[in-house]
Design a protein around this nucleic acid. Structure first.
Length: 274
DNA sequence: ACCTCCCTGGCC
DNA sequence: GGCCAGGGAGGT
């Protein structure tokens, strides 16, 4: 499931390939992939040049000429491939965008939770990208501000970490890893954390995400997430709690527990995380 | 600030 | 044959 480290890994491989290219064709194989979108995506993207490939939270962004923003969200199971036009096409290829160098940007997404948009500047504010909080990797709010944001929340800290309007880019896997590093139980009320805990939480975000990025993200058994060139991310081997129910905590040996918080599986060590 | 919905491969 | 994974958006 592509979270910030996965999307950033993808962005780094894609940027040199996509920047400067012009979009020559756009084939939408599955209509659900185009949503939350006014106007016709095809006519909005055709003929436009990709100036720069960026990322915000879990969104992959391509700035086009004419002030348009091509937004790709990979959802749960989305994957990007850039290959030669004649390259063999796998199942679940949902959108194919042809480029002027003969290559194709292909969005593969079995569950179709991902989506593509092309937005005008006026549309960005009300869209998902426009409502993102500060980026978890490069714009984390100062401790005092973060504490103020959390203090007003009654929900579990795990739930608040997943709220993209608070901090953008943290998903289910990294939220658990961050909370473990910070020594905070995922069920704790966000507003009930003291300033030392908020400070520990804040200083755990960067190291966990950067470590994930260093290993090109987390490819699980299902290999739903792969880099654009087909390589797997290696961070799964480094996970300290996520997916490790009943296995000994790597810090203290206590069996890792699983519980569902806000509809999401959460893994934590009852000894290390208070 | 909460709940519901969408979707399909893989597993029991 | 039924259940599970879970991101974001939109509705209440």
């Amino acid at each position: 499931m592509p979270e910030l480290p996965e999307v950033e890994s993808i962005r780094r491989t894609l940027a040199p390939v996509l920047e400067g290219r012009v979009v020559l064709s756009c084939e939408i194989r599955h209509p659900r992939m185009i949503r939350y979108q006014r106007g016709d995506l095809r006519s909005r993207i055709l003929g436009h040049r990709i100036e720069r490939v960026r990322r915000a939270g879990k969104y992959l962004l391509a700035e086009l000429d004419g002030e348009r923003l091509w937004v790709t969200h990979l959802g749960m199971s989305g994957r990007v491939e850039v290959t030669e036009h004649l390259g063999e096409e796998g199942p679940h290829t949902r959108v194919v965008i042809g480029l002027d160098d003969g290559r194709e940007f292909r969005l593969i997404d079995p569950r179709t939770f991902g989506f593509i948009q092309v937005l005008t500047p006026e549309e960005i504010g009300a869209s998902g990208v426009g409502r993102l909080g500060p980026d978890a990797l490069d714009a984390l709010p100062p401790a005092a501000e973060l504490e103020r944001m959390l203090s007003r929340r009654r929900a579990a800290i795990k739930t608040v970490l997943l709220d993209q309007t608070v901090v953008a880019g943290v998903g289910n896997i990294y939220a658990d890893e961050i909370l473990h590093r910070a020594g905070i139980s995922p069920v704790r009320q966000a507003g009930g954390l003291d300033d030392r805990e908020v400070s520990r939480l804040r200083s755990s975000v960067g190291p966990v995400l950067r470590e994930g990025l260093r290993w090109n993200g987390t490819s699980l058994e299902d290999r739903a997430y792969l880099l654009p060139d087909g390589r797997a991310g290696e961070f799964a081997a480094k996970l300290r709690v996520y997916g490790r129910q009943d296995q000994p905590c790597l810090t203290c040996g206590t069996p890792i527990r699983r519980l569902v918080i806000g509809g999401r599986s959460s893994f934590w060590c009852p000894q290390c995380q208070i």
